[in-house]
Nucleic acid binder design. Structure first.
Lengths: 316, 316
DNA sequence: CGGATCAGATAAGTTATACTTAACTGACAT
DNA sequence: ATGTCAGTTAAGTATAACTTATCTGATCCG
């Protein structure tokens, strides 16, 4: 004899009927008509080859077979309901898993965690810091913050730009006194950030030098593959970076970095919010996006008094 | 939040996939195509609003949500399988519940129990002795032995005649010496069995006297509402019964009763085997019917040398 | 390194499960 | 005697669940 179960809908009908000792009440619990429930019970009895209930006209009682079956189904269905309740609760619980690059996580998101938690104490935020392009079908994340131009990796996803970034030289105040004008940067220790290397047109020191009309070539003294490491080095006085204001905001506010020259390069690359279509309306996802957009507003203040040149305008 | 479960077919698909860690193997277990199983998992994920598996191309692994759900579904579905196995086994176990009249049960079935058990040690026979017409939809019985002409109570049932009974005077041997011929029965203590009173044409002492050509009226000295009680009284020498050979076989064999006169009344009433249509092919039901038919064959021997008159031929 | 294989995914079409409404039955209550 | 109630069944409808065919991408093997 195979271990095959009968139609589960019929088993569920039986379970409800056995618990209520009433087909009408069982039908109500399952949101079906009494006719449907009666039919389900009958089909289960045919499957078994024996009655499960004695019909006493306006009431029913379990047969011996019915009692045998009910003993096992009640706790099993309760177990299924509990399992489903657990997993749906875990989903509906205001947990939000966000993935973003390590630099953005460390320099932009994490510092603001306190603001978000304060504004949304009911949402439990979880970070997953990786440069890998997360696949929403494969990876257990709700939201991603991606940097770049967008494109194929966003196919089939909900996407919205958050931060239209730009870069400008940033350095410790002591270094700013030593190199007081753009021309002096030709002799300054310049730090390279490799994480933007993939961008076209380039957003690097050569491009900035061209935008500044400098004929001298920039001399790179060190390379960093993670932007936050480069920022930390610059804030410690170790050199000058072509910094993104979004990543450097904290160091700027606390005076570890200054942006002494008004010239800045703009790019079409941007930080953007990405999630599976349809989940953007989930309460905690929507709350997170709204918060992101509000927080990003503060970056606009840094644009005041600056002169912007597009990286596309100075590309070779 | 309501406690509603998602479609149970999808939950079962998930359970199988989680146990096998393979959609293909799960599909095989459930006898569906991998396409169907993939679709079921996807629909469950849409119901939940989160993935339950990470697709690693040729493999899958459970997400956190999947692990949460799997923890509860595995034992619950195992519980359902066990419950169904228990009740089907109880059904398929060679248990047979038979209902028949008390007289037939006491005088014909029970004495033969040893024969049946000997012939079918694997079948557990259970008797339910009652005169009430059992309803197979309401009552937990597999088979009924009914006496009578058949009719409306057999509607929708499988029915087969087992014993075409007849009646003749029976008495203890001592009484047979005292009343050696039919005419002498006019002065004998005659016992009436009320359980055949419903039959038309009548199968009672007046009918037998008419068949025998006796002009005297039978004088009933006692009435019994259960035939087996009347038989016991006659076997003890308490009077003469118009006995059914089927019920009296044991007492005849053991010499407690004799049938001294060849004249016997026949009737269209008979003992017949009845069960719900479709269950006559169940092994233990079929075995029981075959056994009944074989056992009934022994009654034919009592017909030798007898003279039969139909009760219909002497009815008034 | 190229071709074969495998497991999972999806679209389109088909089947049958599961539902509905309407009407019936029989016992019970008024 | 009539109305009510819970369960039942027939007939019709909706959709869930299945199929086949084909695709994709990673892995395996010669």
């Amino acid at each position: 004899m195979s271990d095959r179960l009968p139609p589960l809908t019929a088993l569920r009908a039986f379970d409800a009927a056995a618990r209520h000792m009433s087909f009408a009440k069982a039908a109500e619990e399952l949101s079906v008509t009494p006719a449907a429930l009666s039919f389900q019970i009958k089909s289960l009895e045919e499957h078994l080859g024996a009655p499960l209930f004695r019909r006493l006209n306006r009431a029913v009682e379990l047969t011996a077979a019915g009692k045998t079956l009910a003993a096992g189904t009640e706790q099993s269905f309760e177990g299924l309901r509990l399992a489903w309740r657990n997993v749906t609760r875990a989903q509906e619980e205001n947990t939000l898993t966000v993935t973003a690059g390590p630099a953005f996580t460390a320099k932009w998101l994490a510092p603001r965690l306190f603001h978000f938690v304060q504004a949304h104490p009911e949402i439990e935020l979880r970070f997953s810091a990786t440069l890998r392009i997360m696949d929403f079908d494969r990876d257990d994340v709700d939201v991603a913050i991606r940097f770049g131009m967008g494109g194929r990796n966003d196919d089939g996803l909900y996407s919205k730009p958050i931060i239209q970034d730009w870069v400008t030289p940033m350095m410790h105040p002591v270094l700013a006194e030593k190199y007081p004008d753009p021309e002096s940067l030709a002799h300054a220790p310049l730090l390279d950030q490799e994480d933007t290397r993939f961008l076209k047109p380039a957003l690097d020191w050569p491009a900035w030098f061209r935008a500044a009309g400098l004929t001298a070539s920039p001399e790179i003294s060190a390379h960093f593959n993670q932007a936050d490491h480069a920022i930390d080095a610059a804030a410690a006085g170790g050199g000058v970076i072509l910094g993104r204001v979004s990543l450097s905001e904290r160091d700027l506010l606390e005076g570890r970095l200054v942006m002494p020259f008004p010239l800045a390069l703009t790019t079409e690359a941007h930080y953007r919010f990405v999630c599976p279509h349809g989940t953007e309306t989930r309460p905690q996802v929507a709350a997170f996006l709204a918060w992101l957009e509000a927080e990003a507003q503060s970056l606009l203040a840094y644009r005041e008094g600056r002169e912007f040149i597009s990286a596309a305008d100075v590309s070779v």
